[in-house]
């Protein structure tokens, strides 16, 4: 009847808790959502990327070819290179996002201080105001500081739209966080570092994963900000993708878009556990 009940070594009946089962169900729903919403729409793309000719009334490509994928793999096409550039940028943005976002989220989630509402508004602003609206001013500033046309500038400008998500995610975690757990660990003999490792980290980890995922994906899919600050010298995957999308070569554009969404799918699947249910990864600023 109950497949989750079993006997532990000590003979005490161990049951998978109700909550546990519920969160497994939630996780499956999220995975199903990813498959239906993200992977299924990819099938035509996949077909396109292998097609040589595919005219309107036919349901499948009339002639197949691996031309697009050969092109993608060719170093001269710079596609793999731009993939790596995108990856370096997105990972750097994510790393910086975590380093800045965790303490900032802690401050916003746990402490009351004067001007907190204003700071929350400023942090949220980039998620409301489109990047294009402010990019001109930023560009001038970046040129002055030598951050224009290089990868460092791009990394910095990517933080603009992504950092808010990291901070909001962490603020949500810390709003429900009882600092007395840390005190308790100290009292029992853990020093500050061990306390962070054994007590704080496991609690905030889901929030970090969710925030990092948002940060990575926002940076990964950034186009306008990359073009404006990178000045055509920092070639990321979206920059290439846009140029091919306009070129009319559907096979290559499809192959590129598959490469483009691949990391997103991998990340979504890996982190789905933290996106579902009440894992604490999703929060907002909380009630304080």
């Amino acid at each position: 009847m109950s497949q989750s009940a079993g006997l532990s070594k000590t003979g005490v009946i161990k049951k998978q808790s109700h909550k546990q089962r519920q969160s497994n169900v939630m996780r499956n729903i999220v995975l199903l959502g990813i498959i239906v919403g993200v992977i299924l729409p990819m099938i035509p793309q996949l077909l396109w990327s292998f097609s040589f000719r595919w005219y309107f009334p036919s349901l499948l490509p009339t002639e197949l070819s691996s031309r697009a994928w050969v092109y993608v793999a060719n170093p001269n096409s710079k596609i793999l290179e731009s993939f790596i550039v995108s990856l370096i940028i997105a990972l750097s943005v994510t790393a910086i996002g975590i380093v800045v976002g965790v303490p900032a989220g802690k401050a916003l989630g746990m402490y009351k201080f004067r001007g907190k509402e204003l700071i929350e508004l400023i942090i949220l602003a980039p998620t409301i105001v489109p990047g294009l609206a402010v990019i001109m001013g930023i560009q001038i500033l970046f040129i002055r500081f030598g951050l224009s046309d290089n990868i460092v500038g791009v990394i910095i400008v990517h933080l603009l739209p992504s950092l808010p998500y990291m901070i909001i995610s962490m603020a949500g975690v810390f709003a429900n966080y009882d600092p007395q757990f840390e005190e308790q660990a100290r009292s029992l003999g853990a020093n500050a570092i061990k306390t962070f490792y054994y007590i704080t980290l496991p609690v905030i980890f889901p929030g970090i994963v969710v925030g990092a995922m948002f940060t990575f994906l926002i940076s990964w899919s950034q186009y306008i900000l990359t073009i404006m600050v990178g000045g055509g010298r920092v070639i990321t995957l979206p920059v290439l993708l846009f140029s091919f999308a306009g070129s009319g070569d559907n096979a290559i554009a499809s192959a590129l878009s598959i490469i483009f969404v691949l990391p997103a799918i991998v990340i979504l699947i890996v982190t789905s556990k933290y996106l579902s249910g009440k894992s604490g990864g999703m929060g907002g600023f909380g009630s304080i």
Partner: peptide, 12 residues
């Protein structure tokens, strides 16, 4: 003296 060195344990 830091709490972890005091050997005075708190039960909350």
């Amino acid at each position: 003296i830091r709490p972890e060195k005091r050997e005075a344990v708190m039960v909350y």
